[in-house]
């Protein structure tokens, strides 16, 4: 199993800080206790599989997961 620091996060995961600080300055692997996350495919807090989005759940193993390199 990959270490937490290297766990890939779905490339579709978004949160406000992605656009506030800029994508280069946000580590989406680190969950914020006050942030809502959304999926860029659905544009809401629910992913295509109708489950909520967050760094902890938008990881490999989820059916809709898209790796960064694809």
């Amino acid at each position: 199993m990959e270490s937490e620091a290297n766990v890939p996060i779905c490339k579709r995961l978004r949160t406000k800080m992605y656009y506030v600080l800029g994508r280069d300055h946000v580590d989406l692997r680190e969950s914020s206790p006050t942030a809502q996350y959304w999926c860029s495919r659905t544009a809401t807090v629910l992913g295509p599989d109708e489950v909520w989005c967050s760094p902890e759940v938008c990881q490999p193993g989820r059916a809709c997961f898209e790796p960064e390199q694809s």
């Binding site: 969950s31 206790p33 006050t34 809502q36 996350y37 909520w52």
Partner: peptide, 10 residues
């Protein structure tokens, strides 16, 4: 936060 997370207040 309803169906979402992120309800922290700390």
């Amino acid at each position: 936060a309803g169906i979402a997370g992120g309800a922290g207040t700390g």
